Simulated assay, not measured.
Amino acid sequence: MSFNAPPVVFPSGKNPATGPHHRPPSIPFHPNPNLPFMSFDIGSIPQSTSFSSPVYSGNISGTGIDFEDELPLLEELGINTSQIWSKTTSILNPFRLNPNPNLHEDADLFGPFIFLMAFGLFQLLAGKLHFGIILGWVTVSSLFLYVVFNMLAGKNGNLDLYRCLSLVGYCMLPIVIFSAVSLFVPQGGLVVFVMGVVFVIWASRVCARLLVELASCGDEHRGLIGYACWLIYMLFSLLVIF
């Protein structure tokens, strides 16, 4: 039984079974002038003579980036270590009658965050897990002090919540020192209560003076502002005592 099949016709006119394979020549590539292409100067790149990574200079031509003029990472993140140290030393001296309020013009939260974490760490060494309580109480205390100060100052009050939070956090330094010293003092005794009163008065005095002088108002209500600060830091000292 036979089948009639149509003949196969190749475009080249030759049968590949009887002749060599011929591939039509390809058309040379011509880029479209309307499409943008990037040109690279390969000759300007120095040849690497070893398997080590290439060394790049500080200035990359074509981009205008000079790594030598770049700011340090901490300053790019808004963390000024020298300013934080100056603020810390201004509060660390309890015998200074007039701490410099100009240091606290630029409010930041990195220094207070360090103090609060140190306070929580000392409490953890005493067997008390208070990290969440400390952060929550600082937020509520700052809001409380912000409302009280602006109510007393009236229309002249220019204290914002961010600066108030920064001041409350920095003035936590005496309470942090108290929590560190209390690790070596018997708990529940008269000594720890007397120490707590001293450190609370220290923190309240510095915080009230900074608030009054930095906000440039509320001097006639210094006692009431100091009492509000005393309530805040007394609350944190109770975490250390009990």
Results as ranks from 00 to 15, higher is better:
W202R: 08
K87Y: 10
L116H: 04
V197E: 05
S26Q: 06
P28F: 02
M151R: 02
Y162W: 07
P112K: 10
V140L: 05
A5R: 12
W202S: 02
I27M: 13
G226H: 05
F3N: 06
R163P: 03
F236K: 07
L210I: 00
F37G: 10
N100P: 11
F10P: 10
N156I: 06
L167S: 10
F29Q: 07
T49C: 02
T49Y: 00
F236R: 08
P6M: 13
H30K: 05
F199I: 09
S237H: 00
V240D: 07
G62I: 00
C229Q: 04
P186K: 12
P186T: 08
K87A: 15
C171F: 06
R96T: 14
R209C: 03
L129M: 12
E70V: 15
C217M: 01
N80G: 11
K87N: 15
H221K: 02
M151S: 09
V198M: 04
W137V: 00
P31T: 06
L183Y: 11
N158C: 09
T81H: 10
N80P: 12
N93Q: 13
F51C: 07
P16N: 07
W85E: 13
I241P: 03
S26P: 08
K128A: 09
M117T: 12
A118I: 05
G43L: 09
D69T: 13
Q187A: 11
E70D: 14
V55R: 03
D219V: 03
A203N: 00
C171W: 09
F67V: 12
G58R: 07
V200M: 01
G120L: 03
S86L: 15
S48R: 03
L211H: 07
G189A: 08
S26N: 03
P31H: 08
N102Y: 14
L35R: 11
E105S: 15
E105H: 15
I91Q: 15
H221G: 00
V185F: 03
S26Y: 02
V200W: 00
G13E: 12
L159H: 06
S57A: 06
K87I: 14
S39E: 05
D106K: 14
S52T: 09
L135M: 10
L224K: 01
S50Q: 02
P25W: 08
G223P: 02
I114Y: 07
Q187P: 03
P101A: 14
P20A: 11
L143R: 14
A215C: 01
V206W: 10
P28R: 04
Q47C: 01
D41G: 01
L103R: 13
W85K: 14
G43V: 09
Y146Q: 09
G188A: 13
T81P: 04
L224T: 01
N4L: 06
F95H: 14
N59Q: 02
S57D: 06
P33T: 01
K87Q: 15
L190S: 04
Q187M: 03
F40P: 00
P16E: 07
L124H: 04
S216L: 06
V181F: 12
S26D: 04
L109W: 01
I225W: 02
N150R: 11
H221A: 03
D41M: 00
H104A: 15
P28H: 04
G120H: 04
F242E: 11
D69K: 14
L211P: 05
I114W: 05
I134G: 05
L173R: 13
